Simulated assay, not measured.
Amino acid sequence: MITVANRIYVNPEYHDAFEARFRERAGLVDGMPGFIANHVLRPTRDGDPFVVLTFWASREAFEAWTTSDAFRQGHARSGTLPKDAFSGPNVLELHEVVAR
């Protein structure tokens, strides 16, 4: 199993809109083979990023998602926030789960 952590830096005045975007998401990832779960983590300190954390059965399953039509459709909606909503580039991290 792997986790994918997408650290997204959002300006404070856009926090509510960013969270709403995930509450209203298309949910296309939910039916992908190998997808386990999706969590959106809100920062508790100023300046820290949101973390969109997904769990996958394998790296191959995650990579299949990123090259799928469902991925393109789901992320086409991401243009709903203006560029100034983000205070920096996002950082994508992949980790293998070694203990639970």
Results as ranks from 00 to 15, higher is better:
G27P: 03
R45D: 11
Y9N: 12
T44C: 11
P12V: 06
V97W: 04
E60Q: 07
E63Y: 06
G79R: 15
A57H: 12
T66C: 05
E60N: 04
S58V: 03
R23T: 12
N90H: 15
G88S: 07
G74E: 15
L53Q: 09
H15K: 10
F35K: 06
Q73I: 13
V29W: 10
Y9M: 09
K83V: 14
G47A: 08
N38C: 10
A17I: 00
R21G: 14
R100T: 12
H95A: 09
V29A: 12
P89I: 00
V4T: 10
I8Y: 02
K83S: 15
A5N: 12
D69Q: 10
K83W: 13
F71N: 05
S87Q: 03
A64M: 08
E19M: 13
H75Y: 00
D30F: 09
N11P: 00
F18P: 02
R45S: 13
S78C: 00
P12S: 07
G79T: 10
G31Y: 02
F71S: 04
L94E: 11
M1H: 15
E96V: 11
L81C: 06
N6G: 09
L92R: 06
L53N: 08
A5G: 12
F86M: 07
A20W: 08
S68V: 05
S78N: 10
V91N: 13
V97Q: 01
V51I: 14
G27Q: 01
L28G: 11
E19D: 07
V98T: 13
R45G: 05
A64K: 11
V4R: 15
R77Q: 12
G79W: 01
R7T: 00
S58E: 04
A57T: 11
D16I: 00
F86N: 04
E13K: 08
L81V: 07
D84M: 03
V98E: 06
H75D: 05
H75S: 03
H95E: 09
T80L: 11
F22A: 04
N90Q: 14
R42L: 00
Q73H: 09
D69W: 04
L92E: 05
H15C: 10
